[in-house]
Design a protein around this nucleic acid. Structure first.
Lengths: 240, 240
DNA sequence: AAAATAGTGTCTATGAGACACTATTCC
DNA sequence: GGAATAGTGTCTCATAGACACTATTTT
């Protein structure tokens, strides 16, 4: 007689099978002081103990109903905030990357405002913001250098065809600030006029009043991203 | 005294921990007879036994050194060929999608020429090419309908900014054939002139002689993709 | 007024869309 | 020659790049 699915499931026990190690990790970026920053956390357990790494860890089957919940939990634990922008980047899995054996990580890229989590981060000793250019030279745990580079590259592409990097700025920002952020990401100057045409066309932002003139020169208008705007992509990219 | 990493690893036994089920799956597309086809395989074991699904399965830690090797092996098993184009699409993981428990799948999208694997597929009873539009109406296993739709959508985007869909055609193809393939993917006519300008600009193809005139009208030039060409992306998309 | 920064006007260059035109085949 | 399909010429339109111009602030 044929076994039914219910019978099959009753007998089935996952513990009889060995599955790869499953982790979620996040490359969390922000933009501050004209620099791209990436969030790093110090590994407090073996393996790679003492090295700095992208925040992440094992999925907790009790706490996390999905990969998205798992990464949001990790992010909350390290920054104290929910990231306004998060996107799945890539998964990496092989038998070399973790000394414990065959391991898979699902990697996300998140963007946050520095101010939204600075006090939280400052009060935790094993988490810090590192300038991306400095992080590149570090001996990060596992294959996190390569993963971080892939996230950085994707962010560059986003800068060429979207305004997504705005999520790396404070909730209120000026257009010169956003333009500079994009310029750092694509490592090339952008024409003011081109940039502002795109801002206008995308219609993603609303004015929130003139920025107080704490600097020299004409004060700039501050903006914030409109509520519930969908991810806008331009049909024509900026020159790479 | 501090435990060294070597000591830690010696004591570490993965079998003490329960990890999610890990699978790799592929949405494999081809283009034939003016239609987009997707490769489906019938599930011969519980769960979801008897339903059709995207080809895939568990990573084999003995056979597969990485996710890429795992998916290439699955692909070879179902089609008999190595796909000329394969790309990671997305990973999906939650405690709902598989009745056996918390499960993660790393999904790839592959493009193959129908002719390269037709005889192989025809000789295997649990594998078949299905027209995408028909597959959409099927009750596929797990969350494979949603995954297939996501793969289809990504392929549409590729059609707007690249010539990648050419990998879904036979090795030698004509420009009208490729244009039609792109038109099906974006579900919209493309101007001949725009299309051909892009082909010329991308410089991805080489002529391989006039196509024998088995049809009415002027014979068209056949092309093939040049060896070792990098993934070309246009800075300006076609209108969606 | 000069310096600095914000923001606009306008020209050029590129490339997609539109569409009429020519070219080559079969009947 | 007519029908069908392949392929080109050329105009318009949208938008990025370039860059000079105006606007508003501090000193």
């Amino acid at each position: 007689m044929q076994e039914t699915e219910a019978e099959f499931l009753k007998k089935y026990d996952r513990r009889e099978y060995l599955a790869p190690l499953m982790t979620v990790d996040a490359a969390i970026f922000t933009f501050h002081g004209g620099k791209l920053l990436v969030l790093l956390t110090e590994r407090c357990e073996h393996p790679e103990k003492g090295k700095w790494a992208l925040p992440g860890g094992f999925v907790d089957e009790e706490k996390d109903a999905s990969l998205e919940e798992a990464i949001q939990r990790k992010l909350q634990e390290k920054t104290g905030v929910k990231a306004p922008y998060i996107e799945q980047l890539i998964s990496v899995g092989n038998n070399q990357r973790d000394a414990r054996g065959w391991s898979v990580t699902v990697v996300y890229t998140a963007l946050v405002a520095l101010q939204s989590c600075q006090s939280f981060v400052d009060n935790v000793s094993d988490v810090r913001w590192e300038m991306y250019e400095e992080a590149l030279k570090m001996d990060l745990a596992f294959d996190h250098i390569e993963i971080m580079k892939a996230a950085r590259e994707r962010l560059k592409q986003k800068a060429l065809y979207s305004m997504v990097p705005a999520y790396a700025l404070p909730e209120e920002f000026t257009l010169p600030e956003l333009q500079h952020c994009l310029e750092v990401l694509i490592d090339k100057p952008i024409q003011k006029k081109s940039f502002r045409r795109r801002v206008e066309q995308a219609d993603l932002m609303e004015e929130v009043g003139l920025r107080s003139a704490d600097k020299k020169g004409r004060p700039s208008m501050a903006y914030r991203l409109k509520e519930g705007v969908k991810d806008f992509t331009f049909i024509r990219n900026l020159d790479a």
